[in-house]
Design a binder for these strands. Structure first.
Lengths: 208, 208
DNA sequence: AATTCCAGAGAACAGTTGTTAACTGGATGA
DNA sequence: TCATCCAGTTAACAACTGTTCTCTGGAATT
């Protein structure tokens, strides 16, 4: 089903990706609302006007970055929630997965944390929509679990939002600890695991 | 103990406050890292150079805004956690308190949510410090409660961080719903209350 | 009453920004 | 092979930025 792009389309996508990558680097030390289009093109080594061949504005670029950062995470989240094993094992695995992802891709994670409540409306909305999709997917996975018996749809969605928010809190904790010592990062992981444990306990006794 | 300021100092403080107020308005539609000093002085109606009499930079202004937004909230948080009544009553009261605060002071709340992970390091640090102080204070209040018997200091701090994070999540939910219908805002309040309820249940069974 | 102080004004600086228009040259399709 | 397309270039625009230095006039101090 894959169609080989012509030389022209291939080169265009390459430039587009270079713009997005350069933006992500520049956004490590500022917010999207202060990112200039010239700044990005300068970093790539291309004329300022070339920017318009790919994006209407930096806000438009931001929306594309949201897709890139979160779009590919859906299967990963699904399998994490579905994972077998005891509750304790699943928590440990989830925390390790988050730690690994943050270490491997710090820039996109930072971008999402920063722009979730940032100053650019279309980007905020794009992130909100993706996170809502995550919560929906987590809910359908949770619904399959035996523990979900007797739960209303509303309560399941409430819980899945709690889980998704907690993932983001954990990710941003790891982000802050990225430059810290391994001991500090271990401490963060243990804290995050305990918080998830408490939520799981609350879940287990919800219907009492 | 209050000392009446001279005319000069009084006028200076007035201008300083005007700069901060104007900044807060401008920051409703952008992030601090894109806020220009001229932009702020123009909004107040003073010369750009007057800015330097009060702040070294816009980052410096941001740190002052953090103090103003969070500094006065410590007693409020203390009493909320200490409040008497059943667990359910305390949750309802806490959610109402947050809803009321967001409605009364949306701009400072938005500023904190936005800059907590924003692009200006000193401001991020100022917010992190204030939130850590909140968590410490919540912990000492929780420690007084009978339910805290048998809890380690670490676990208490873990729980208080969970509560503080949940307050921020709730606040930003209300912020998003500010322009929505009363029904929608009521829905948000009920969701937030249920999430806090689940955490409280987890807390009750933590030592099982 | 004379002196010092200092918040704010004014003017000027070099450097930056987004956006427009007209162009070039290599890939594309007839 | 030849006409068309279009990603990227070049040049120019008015508008804006943070920062410096110099000045002013009223409050504060002596």
């Amino acid at each position: 089903m894959s169609h080989t792009l012509g030389i022209r389309q291939a080169q265009k996508q390459k430039t587009r990706q270079a713009l997005m990558d350069a933006a992500l680097v520049l956004l490590e030390e500022q917010s999207l609302s202060s990112l200039g289009l010239r700044e990005v093109t300068r970093a790539v080594g291309v004329a300022p006007t070339a920017f318009y061949r790919h994006f209407r504005s930096t806000a438009d670029l931001g929306v594309a970055l949201v897709e890139e950062a979160l779009g590919s995470l859906h299967p990963m989240i699904r399998t994490t929630v579905t994972a077998e094993g005891t509750s304790e094992e699943r928590i440990t695995r989830a925390v390790e997965l988050i730690a690994g992802h943050v270490t491997a891709y710090p820039a996109p994670v930072r971008f999402i944390a920063r722009e979730r409540h940032g100053g650019v409306q279309p980007v905020r909305e794009a992130i909100r929509d993706q996170l809502a999709r995550f919560a929906e997917e987590v809910r359908t996975e949770l619904a399959k679990d035996a523990e979900a018996e007797g739960w209303s749809d509303d309560d399941l969605l409430m819980l899945s939002h709690l889980y998704v928010d907690q993932m983001l809190v954990t990710a941003s904790l790891f982000l802050e600890a990225l430059e810290s010592s391994p001991e500090e990062r271990e401490r963060v992981g243990l804290l995050a695991a305990r918080q998830m444990r408490l939520i799981s306990i609350g879940r287990r006794h919800w219907l009492d």
